[in-house]
Amino acid sequence: MEIKEQKIKDVIVLEILGRVDTTNYGKLEGVLSDYIAKNEKNIIIDCSEMDYISSSGLRVFLTGFKKINAINGNYFLCGLQDNIQEIFEISGFTSIFKIFTNQENALKGIE
């Protein structure tokens, strides 16, 4: 897994490349909690290059969501691949997260 981090205006965009599984979810958790500790309120996770996510990874997504939600920030996901969209649908996460088709739309969503 690789995480590309960038800041567009006041939005942190994290692009995840590859697989999020039990061996590396800690890295993503670390990156997310660092931004939250810096009082970043707007986070977009771009999943267009993310091939797989395990339940451990889903838990990290969820933790981030809860923390941002608690400070009334925006926590958007975008670009979910079909198989991941399906996992999200089965687990009901599509009803928790705000999910956009691509990064551009997600950024517009924050504006």
């Binding site: 969820l62 089965i90 687990s91 009901g92 996460f93 009803s95 928790i96």
Partner: peptide
């Protein structure tokens, strides 16, 4: 058919 998110979240 499913009936909501996993338990332990909300």
């Amino acid at each position: 058919e499913t009936h909501g998110t996993p338990i332990g979240i909300f």
